[in-house]
Amino acid sequence: MLGFLIQRLLQAALVMLAMSALVFLGVYAIGNPIDVLISPDATQDIRAATIRAYGLDRPLWEQYGVFLGRLLRGDLGRSFVFNIPVLELVLDRLPATLELALASVLIGAFVGVPLGIYAGYRPDGALSRGIMAASVLGFSVPTFWVGLILILTFAVNLGWLPAGNRGETVRVLGAGWSFLTWDGLQHLALPALNLSLFKLAMMIRLARAGTREVMLSDTVKFARAAGLSEWTILRRHVLRLIAIPLVTVFGLEFGSTLAFAVVTETIFSWPGVGKLIIESITALDRPVMVGYLVLVAFLFVTINLVVDLAYAALDPRLRRRARA
């Protein structure tokens, strides 16, 4: 198991190195932030001094070397616009995106998996057909349109839930969390529901397909022949056998939700890193853009590593292979 972990850590380090180079080159090849940072009528001397102060007069490879050295020390640079360390700025917004992404993925998992298992267990029932029809809508309807409809229905017409912002928060471990207060939960409900619809539909279809396959297997036939109840078969055999693809989707969807919650955060004015990256792109705040993308790549790599370790815990064949 230790060799398996070391191999995955080395792979993660190589992926992070490659991603940092691609992100840096891609972002620094776009636009000139000096045009945004200083007034258009500034003198050439002021312009040249600003370029030197931000190190933009150096060759691109040298700028990357400086960036990589800072990155290894945990320094992502300073924001051009906010003039504070990028890591501090991103970490201040990250809890909002983390709880929004986690809430949406948990809704998709704890609602979608039971519905998918039921649809796979009784595929010809009317309720199962309705579940599958609803899952098609989850894939087809655009997120921004659903968000506007949710605001119009529950915030404007019914007045049950707030339309935007984060609400009251409680600071735990130096970060503010809105799910710990009733007002924060009310503000979290609509954006989390909006962001979870695609995950919910995916979990339903994945769980249904896995259940249909497992129900026709010899494992279930032998379990029924042994006199086990249907609930025991579903809990001990079906759910366990479909757990690996579900864990994969859960991990990857959590990472993609962190990275691509921009639309939902914009619609609901949710103060997360997605809204921050939109503001940074508008202002050509290169350090924030690079820092955000590197952090997202790091989160993806970390989540994939955790998923690989979960594989080893769920599948005994991987543990035997790792020991070998």
Results as ranks from 00 to 15, higher is better:
I6M: 08
S20V: 03
A21V: 15
A21T: 09
L22N: 08
L25M: 11
G26I: 02
I30C: 03
P40T: 07
I46S: 08
I46N: 03
R47I: 00
R47A: 06
T50F: 01
I51K: 14
Y54V: 13
L56A: 12
Q63F: 12
Q63S: 05
F67Q: 05
G69T: 01
G74I: 02
G77Y: 12
S79F: 05
L87T: 13
A101Y: 01
I107G: 05
G108L: 00
A109E: 06
P114H: 05
I117C: 00
Y118H: 14
Y121M: 15
L127S: 14
R129D: 03
G130C: 04
I131G: 13
A134P: 11
A134C: 12
L137F: 10
V146P: 02
I149M: 14
T153A: 04
L158N: 06
L161T: 09
A163I: 08
R166Q: 14
G167T: 13
V170N: 05
R171S: 12
T181L: 01
L185Q: 13
L190C: 04
M202Q: 13
M202Y: 01
M203H: 06
R205W: 01
M215I: 10
F222H: 10
A223R: 07
R236C: 09
A243Y: 01
A243R: 14
T248S: 13
G251R: 15
G251C: 04
L252A: 05
S256R: 13
S256H: 07
T264W: 02
F268P: 00
W270Y: 14
V273A: 07
G274M: 03
I281V: 13
I281A: 13
D285Y: 15
R286M: 10
Y292Q: 12
L295Y: 08
A297N: 12
A297G: 10
L299E: 07
L299K: 12
L305Y: 15
V306S: 07
A310S: 11
A310L: 10
Y311L: 02
Y311R: 11
P316C: 07
L318R: 04
R321E: 10
